[in-house]
């Protein structure tokens, strides 16, 4: 018989983790339902997931491809690698914030683990990323871009990226519950950061006085650990990997701790 004793509740950061494991089927169902509701109604169905990044890449390649012809051969591959990671991080975090603030009413009505929606958002984002990698593969195939053993590093990259994204989503969702304008501020900031991140252009085109600040852009190592194995066909440098791991670990710990400690108050705020 299950027992609950508020005096014997384990620390919040552990409690939430065990509760999520107990409710794992719910997390999986929510992810399935997000995918279903998004793609059931469009006639293109699952192909839309493939088509969307392809079209985006084609348009941007036509627009900018010639500009970086010499510095970035197979520009489409470079571009799409960066875009996929950028979209993974920003779309997942935005989705998490919105589902927490709008769908969070359920948390006030019945007990479910408070992080359910955020973990489901991260899971949904991860699936979208994996599907988009298929469209990246199509482009790589058409451009005859080499595929080497360095692809075996990608699972590690994706794991690091997922840790970062989940932590960031938890952090932002907590903020979004307490401050209504978090989503708006975040949108403005990400838009600015997008152009300050070498996604559409090579880092070399920035003038040195701006370029030297690039080491402070936390997104760059996260993109590099994914893009270098695919685009440059080598393993990323050790210092990039270490930077990315440290960043992701800190983000996950901070996000998880903040969220789980504020989760009980969330009920009063939603």
């Amino acid at each position: 018989m299950p027992k609950y004793d508020s005096a014997k509740r384990p620390p919040l950061i552990i409690d939430e983790f065990f509760q999520l494991i107990r409710y794992r089927d719910l997390v999986i169902l929510i992810i399935e339902n997000i995918l279903k509701s998004r793609y059931k109604r469009s006639t293109l169905g699952i192909f839309w997931m493939l088509l969307n990044p392809l079209l985006q890449t084609i348009v941007l390649t036509i627009a900018f491809g010639t500009m970086f012809k010499s510095s970035l051969p197979n520009y489409a591959v470079y571009l799409l690698c960066g875009l996929l990671i950028w979209n993974y991080i920003t779309q997942t975090t935005q989705y998490a914030m919105v589902s927490m603030t709008q769908g969070g009413g359920l948390l006030r009505r019945i007990y479910i683990p408070r992080a359910t929606y955020i973990v489901a958002s991260a899971g949904n984002g991860l699936i979208n990323l994996l599907v988009s990698i298929a469209s990246l593969a199509i482009i790589i195939f058409f451009l005859n871009h080499p595929i080497t053993l360095s692809w075996f590093f990608l699972p590690i990259s994706i794991l690091i990226l997922t840790m970062f994204t989940l932590g960031f989503a938890l952090l932002l969702s907590t903020a979004a519950v307490f401050f209504n304008d978090t989503v708006d501020i975040y949108q403005v900031l990400t838009q600015a950061l997008f152009f300050l991140t070498p996604i559409m252009y090579p880092p070399s085109i920035l003038p040195t006085e701006i370029g030297k600040y690039l080491i402070w852009n936390p997104i760059i190592p996260l993109i590099d650990i994914f893009r270098i194995p695919i685009y440059n066909n080598t393993l990323p440098d050790m210092d990039i990997i270490i930077k990315a791991i440290i960043l992701a670990t800190i983000m996950l710990i901070v996000g998880w701790t903040l969220f789980t400690n504020k989760a009980d108050q969330v009920i009063y705020r939603l």
């Binding site: 018989m1 299950p2 027992k3 609950y4 004793d5 508020s6 005096a7």
Partner: peptide, 9 residues
């Protein structure tokens, strides 16, 4: 504040 104890589903 306080304590809640519940046994069962």
């Amino acid at each position: 504040q306080g304590r809640l104890y519940v046994e069962g589903r």
